[in-house]
Design a protein around this nucleic acid. Structure first.
Lengths: 353, 353
DNA sequence: ATAATAATTGAAAGCGCTTTCATTCATGCA
DNA sequence: TGCATGAATGAAAGCGCTTTCAATTATTAT
């Protein structure tokens, strides 16, 4: 195995490495100012000049220096995103589309993870801000108070995604998690279920998870029902956790067990379905299971997961457009709702009897 | 819905917005040079001075300007990654860990997607290079020739991941995809299978997918076997595609059908398993199915997917360390192999009879 | 033709920071 | 006590680019 020593750049020396704008200008026989214009604002310059400079740039293999450009123009053409984790496929999809739209619009994306912790989110955002991002995508609505202050004072556009804030205190792109959970619950209620359980995500540091639990409770309350003790459990998003969660909420004598389990996301629901099978329970015969998100697998996993479809890619793309529009002074909706829809599949049915 | 006009920054005016290093220096009663040192290289400065400057910085809420810093120091403290897509959970995990390790080491991550296309990869990498990244993580070994040239001339450290290049032409962190596929196939062979099919990923623009197919062929050839016509099919990575793929490779009279199907990744394998069930085939009774990657779900999906475990998170972290070490002039392995291991679960068994 | 206007171009001043280099001051040694 | 070292500081020169502002030239109107 060979070891390599990095080429420790000798600063302020051997600077002859890369060609700079002035070289291009010299070759083209124009001033750096004109060269800059020819490259960046072609229509502010004569046609012949434009070509002359372009040719010179290509010939020299000129690559602009973003730092210098950013410093001089005060524009970094970079957007930041702080997400809880990329490990959740639904977030990954959102970031994927965010990047691709940003790319189309000529911006780059810097990502950082928060691990569902507001303090780390703040730290990461600060970091990105120092790096000169011109816009920031955040997930959810619950952030460190200092974060908003920071964003406000620096005048950096930002947008909360995956949520629809009623009071519109901040720009947002998303949907009402409470209402979506209500709809999911109502669907189950209308099917005739009366004994419920919920395997929710960890509410702490995750307003979406919390809101979904609120929605479930609310819908039940409207019909005079509630989640009995031990029928609401919080688990980190994961398949393993869904399995554990199911065991926990199914404790107790059979006749008291829930007939419907609502999961905070699809991963938990997958786990619940797998564990139900392991427990010898038929889904949906003995137990209805619903999820939230609608990932690629949800439609394929037998018996098909009934879930709330969340357009994560769309939100990513919308966030990109919102941010870029704000930055470029174009009109941008302060609040954009996206459609979530109930997708009924095989994992739900009326309760037995 | 309110419309907002972005606060179009008036350039070269209202510049009083943010506090700069000279402000901090002034408040601390020192020169900008000392302020810079106090903040960046604390041990090069007197203890009292250090504190004085720090206090001033805090008091003013000083936030350094990364562009200026990058321009002056020629260091951006930013690493780039061009990945095919974030939509594949295995890549998402890799990027996740890359970011988190980078973060620990004080670097930021800029990501861009290539959509499995070398030309787009080149474009994206060029983009990142312009933005001053100091290192680049790539996936796979097949890249646009110009990309290597670019990297070489600019002297930017880079690393190919998910692969182990025998000739070590470029730094890499990964495993031998051919050999891994051989192992997977040998396992099936040893189980007694003789009629095989493969649902591979699209080889074009994806050397890993191609290598896995090569490995399967190679292992079969060693035992005098081959993939018959129509028993090797390429599909984009996806569950739907796995289902389609299975139908395709299972065509023909029952006695000629394969008894083992090797899938290019786990998503395809999931699809194959689901489709087998839909076709009334028992897995592993009638058909053994293996995947590649070992995602979170693989252990949970009944009957449990036999697959090759790929340490994607580890590769991400190793890539971060490699790149940072190179950049900082510390020793770094040119070539690092990571362990992939066969995880045997319920989806495989000896063929009937 | 000539004056007034618009379109191009160049000179030069930074953007906010880091780093070299020279200077100053304290320290140790003879 | 005097001189050589070394440590701590400041002055100043950029890093490579964009943009203002003034100067020049090409257009058009009178």
């Amino acid at each position: 195995m060979t070891m390599e020593r990095g080429t420790k750049r000798k600063r302020f020396q051997e600077s002859a490495q890369s060609v700079k704008l002035s070289d291009v200008a010299a070759l083209a026989g124009v001033s750096p100012a004109t060269a800059s214009r020819a490259l960046n604002t072609p229509d502010k310059v004569g046609a012949d000049m434009r070509e002359r400079v372009r040719a010179a740039a290509v010939k020299l293999g000129y690559v602009p220096d973003a730092a210098a450009r950013a410093l001089a123009s005060r524009r970094s053409r970079t957007i930041g995103a702080v997400v809880p984790t990329l490990d959740n496929p639904i977030f990954a999809t959102g970031v994927q589309r965010l990047e691709s739209r940003l790319n189309e619009r000529g911006y780059a994306l810097v990502v950082a993870g928060s691990d569902y912790r507001v303090d780390k989110e703040l730290r990461q955002a600060t970091n990105l801000l120092e790096r000169g991002i011109e816009g920031l995508m955040l997930m959810g609505t619950e952030h460190h108070p200092s974060l908003y202050v920071l964003l406000e004072t620096r005048g950096v556009p930002h947008v909360n995604t995956w949520v629809d804030e009623g009071d519109a205190a901040h720009p947002c792109i998303g949907f009402d998690n409470v209402e979506a959970a209500v709809r999911l619950t109502d669907y189950l209620l209308d099917l005739g279920h009366a004994r419920f359980a919920m395997i929710a995500g960890i509410a702490e540091g995750n307003d979406r998870a919390a809101a979904r639990a609120v929605g479930v409770r609310e819908a039940l309350a409207r019909r005079g029902l509630r989640l009995d003790d031990g029928r609401l459990i919080e688990e980190p998003y994961g398949v393993r956790e869904g399995r554990d969660g199911l065991r926990a909420v199914m404790a107790g004598p059979p006749e008291e067990r829930p007939t419907a389990v609502i999961c905070g996301n699809d991963l938990l629901a997958f786990g619940a379905i797998f564990e139900a099978a392991a427990m010898g329970l038929d889904v949906p015969g003995d137990l209805s299971v619903v999820g939230f998100d609608d990932t690629e697998l949800s439609s394929h996993i037998p018996p098909g997961l009934t879930t709330m479809h969340v357009p994560s890619g769309e939100m990513g793309a919308l966030a990109a457009d919102y941010l870029v529009n704000r930055i470029e002074g174009k009109p941008a909706r302060h609040r954009t709702r996206v459609e979530v829809r109930l997708v009924v599949r095989g994992s739900t049915a009326p309760p037995r009897g």
